[in-house]
Amino acid sequence: MTRALSSIACITLIFLGFSKVNGQLNSTFYDSTCPNVSSTVQAAVQQAIANEARMGASLLRLHFHDCFVNGCDGSILLDDSVNITGEKTAGPNNNSVRGFDVIDTIKSQVEAICSGVVSCADILTLAARDSVVALGGPTWTVQLGRRDSLTASLSTANSNIPAPTSNLSALISSFSNQGLSTQDMIALSGAHTIGQARCTVFRTHIYNETNINSTFASSVQANCPLSGGDNNLSPLDLQTPTTFDNDYYMNLMSQSGLLHSDQELFNGGSADSQVTTYSNNQNTFFTDFASAMVNMGNINPLTGSSGEVRTNCRKPN
């Protein structure tokens, strides 16, 4: 943790103009309308992680799964209703994404200080950054001004979010479809330095595939039997599962990636060089991750008069 924290001090980054939406979002969007929003979100995230360290990874993942479905618009937060089929039951999300109650708590606290001003999409984006920082990772300046969608897309959630069974080509394509580079993809995959995965999504990798360290596979098999135990959890990074560092890339180099899609980043392909760089230099990983998070947060936001600012993140106004 000390190594990671010491790196933060020299990596306070401001990234502007990274995407096609440059100029629509800005870091000072709420300075006059809700000046305490950032500190409010940060305090709530820190409390949630203090209650459960795993929550940091869950909040980061919520932001990712939101942005890959029609942009960073808070659509993943919408519950099913008579008029809306939400994204929570999509294959990549069902019994998997979590942290909705934490977002509800943050939203209620923000509404108490400035009602109807801050979007759920912006709260998700801030919470993702604050989660990374709370677990020892880099910080960056979050661009703000997103508005919330009025609807969701179950079908797009099923098709756009990359699967843990994806090969390298599919991963590159999936991120490219969102305007993200291969470098962004490899850096963002480093989010798997925190959090856990369910047995059902990595069973094939640890039992049937060859690009995996046999000792590592055996250690994980103890908690993920050939049948049953589908929801048993294993850390994505066995060494430091609640510390944001570069151990994920070190694991890949020793063929100890938990997911098939993880190990695809170091399997004799075009991503090997970048993985090697990150495994050797945590500061480079932190810098690239921060940049990639800004890029991801800029995927097709609703701005201006589009969408709305929901007062309840689970339903349109």
Rank of each mutant, 00 (worst) to 15 (best):
V69P: 01
N70L: 04
G71C: 07
G71A: 06
G71Y: 03
C72K: 00
C72D: 02
G74H: 00
G74A: 00
G74S: 00
G74I: 00
S75V: 02
S75R: 04
S75Q: 02
I76W: 00
I76A: 02
L77C: 05
L78W: 05
L78V: 07
L78A: 08
D79Y: 10
D79S: 10
D79I: 03
D79L: 15
D80M: 09
S81G: 15
V82R: 10
V82D: 13
V82K: 13
V82M: 12
N83I: 13
N83L: 15
N83H: 11
I84E: 09
I84H: 09
I84G: 07
T85G: 01
E87R: 08
K88Y: 02
K88N: 05
K88S: 04
T89C: 03
A90M: 04
A90P: 03
A90H: 01
A90W: 03
G91K: 12
G91D: 10
P92Y: 03
P92R: 02
P92E: 04
P92F: 05
N93I: 09
N94K: 12
S96I: 14
V97Y: 01
R98F: 15
R98H: 15
R98W: 13
G99I: 10
G99L: 09
G99W: 08
F100R: 00
D101Y: 05
V102K: 04
V102G: 04
V102I: 15
V102D: 05
I103N: 05
T105Q: 12
T105K: 11
T105G: 12
T105F: 10
T105A: 15
I106V: 11
I106H: 03
K107L: 11
K107W: 06
S108V: 08
S108F: 05
Q109Y: 05
Q109P: 04
V110W: 09
E111C: 06
E111Q: 12
A112P: 07
A112D: 11
C114P: 11
C114Y: 11
S115C: 11
